[in-house]
Design a protein around this nucleic acid. Sequence first.
DNA 1: TGCCAGGCCGGGT
DNA 2: ACCCGGCATGGC
Length: 218
Amino acid sequence: MYRAMHGRWGERRWWPSRAGAETPEGKLEICVGTILTQNTNWRNVETAIANLLAAGKMTVGRLHRARPETLAKLIRPAGYFNVKARRLQSFIARVHTGFGGDIAAFLDRPLATLRPALLGVNGIGPETADSICLYAAGLATFVVDAYTRRIFLRHGLITPASADYKSIKRLCETHLPAEVALYNDYHAQLVETGKHYCKPTARCDGCPLASFPHDPRA
DNA sequence: TGCCAGGCCGGGT
DNA sequence: ACCCGGCATGGC
């Protein structure tokens, strides 16, 4: 299924997009993006990120010191701007107080400690935590999202009873080599495929996965 | 015109 | 352990 999707869309080259995941600025931008894109179209998130950059707020220090209302105004296009302003600052607070604002140091930990630390931040759930671990920290952890669940359900790889986050994640990680580059692109492929062909209303026609057994109504 | 978007939290059963 | 309402803008 991965080869079919990759053949259709090509390498997705998700994060890092702009600054590069090697630089602290790039890592921070990825973390901010993961929070802003919660249940939100990436297009809107790009506008919000551009606003933060233009306002010179895309640093740990500036995000930490900014008033919530100021932040909310800048990230308005991303929706849920009040909750996201708070979530952004609760994340930044950990980086600021625990690691002197050094985002690279904050991320430079094994999965076994970084992931729980992220889950302890109010506003960071399993998907956002895994996205930060995979895309910003470069750790091999599989990211599960609504499209992953929907596609796997339609293809009978999971059942409604086994469709919880942890089960789907485990399924992927036990059947795939634990490679960062693969996990990175695989998640992106699922999202791209889902956006075009696996919305709540069934439109499987032309889907790169159409030749695999599936039930559009599932 | 609705429906949907790269979720998560808090309060209630 | 689930279930649900709330959060909100912008594009197709």
